[in-house]
């Protein structure tokens, strides 16, 4: 790094932004890869049902299927409600 660069080095570190974004998307896509094909459709259906009652965005519902042992898989449904729409 030259002396000139030293005075200009207040720029944001883009490599760490890249790493964070990658960690999130890669983890997401790995879950998708190992889950059954019907999961995305199940997620959309659940979203539709909830929307009959509460106005929520697409990314506020997540459905994951985790295999916890050979005999047992757990379907986990996460719905984030907007603060003012609760109840």
């Amino acid at each position: 790094m030259s002396l000139l660069d030293y005075f200009r080095s207040s720029k944001k570190n883009t490599a760490s932004t890249a790493k964070e974004r990658l960690q999130i998307i890669v983890a997401h896509e790995r879950r998708r890869r190992t889950s059954p094909d019907y999961l995305p459709q199940l997620e959309r259906d659940i979203l539709e049902v909830i929307r009959k009652y509460v106005d929520i965005a697409d990314d506020q519902v997540s459905v994951t299927l985790e295999k916890s042992s050979d005999e047992l898989s757990v379907l986990e449904l996460n719905v984030t409600f907007p603060e003012d729409k609760r109840g």
Partner: peptide
């Protein structure tokens, strides 16, 4: 990489 512009 050293400048934080590329993944290490």
């Amino acid at each position: 990489v050293q400048k934080g512009e590329m993944l290490s």
